[in-house]
Nucleic acid binder design. Sequence first.
DNA 1: GTCCTTGCAAAGCGTTTGCACAGAA
DNA 2: TTCTGTGCAAACGCTTTGCAAGGAC
Lengths: 133, 133
Amino acid sequence: MIKTFQNIFKEKGISPSYTRTRIYHYLEVSKNHPTVDEIYTALKDELPTLSKTTVYNVLNLFIEKELVKLVNMNSSEARYELYEQEHSHFKCDICGVIYDIPKIKTNYDKNQLGMFKVKNEEVNLSGICPKCI
Amino acid sequence: MIKTFQNIFKEKGISPSYTRTRIYHYLEVSKNHPTVDEIYTALKDELPTLSKTTVYNVLNLFIEKELVKLVNMNSSEARYELYEQEHSHFKCDICGVIYDIPKIKTNYDKNQLGMFKVKNEEVNLSGICPKCI
DNA sequence: GTCCTTGCAAAGCGTTTGCACAGAA
DNA sequence: TTCTGTGCAAACGCTTTGCAAGGAC
């Protein structure tokens, strides 16, 4: 089955308004974990009446429906990405860009954590990216 | 050599004012990655003229001098901890508490990252903690 | 008609900045 | 005296809330 917006949204119980499909599409094509402001700036020509409130509304809806997740790298603004194949993140200390990198595997004994039930794990690397060397 | 505040601060070129030593001490004894507000609330009886601005000033100084680092788990407020022996973090999805856990090792081929120079890595787990099961 | 989506304006909240006062050196 | 530490008040920036207008159904 082809993953149209209609299908993706229907699965999650979200009605596919044009604004929502455009925001979703932007998250698909922009691979740079955009901020609200970046999404707003990118779409405001195409959607002249768009407001940041709507971008926030739509992203919070997507998060609630588990279509989107927050990228967990310290910065003053929230960054968003689609749930996709698993990967890890690399943040450049110089330019601040967050790159997707192949998923870094962890290596630990589940027993070592006792009663902690692990549901999710993430690995974040930082350092210097190829462009900044 | 005994690690007095004087020694620790001297190494980093920080003069050991009373306020600074109390904030540092609070970070040592509180193992819960406190927020600015928690530090302020905990110390304001002992330091009646303390202001949040000073807590921010001191923490930012400590970060700059690499005595303290920001804990990188999504939340609206910044959380702080001392540089200490390496460990990883576990955040409970239910109660929100961030636990220190033994350092989770990663397992990857440096060559797989090409020109990315890794300087730091962190592993964050989340799930359900023993108290919330 | 009702319900949902959108978006303006305002509020909220964590953090930083400007600046001045007081104490240390 | 000069420099440093502190803290009030205001500004700032990101995000959420209140609410109303318009459209979908």
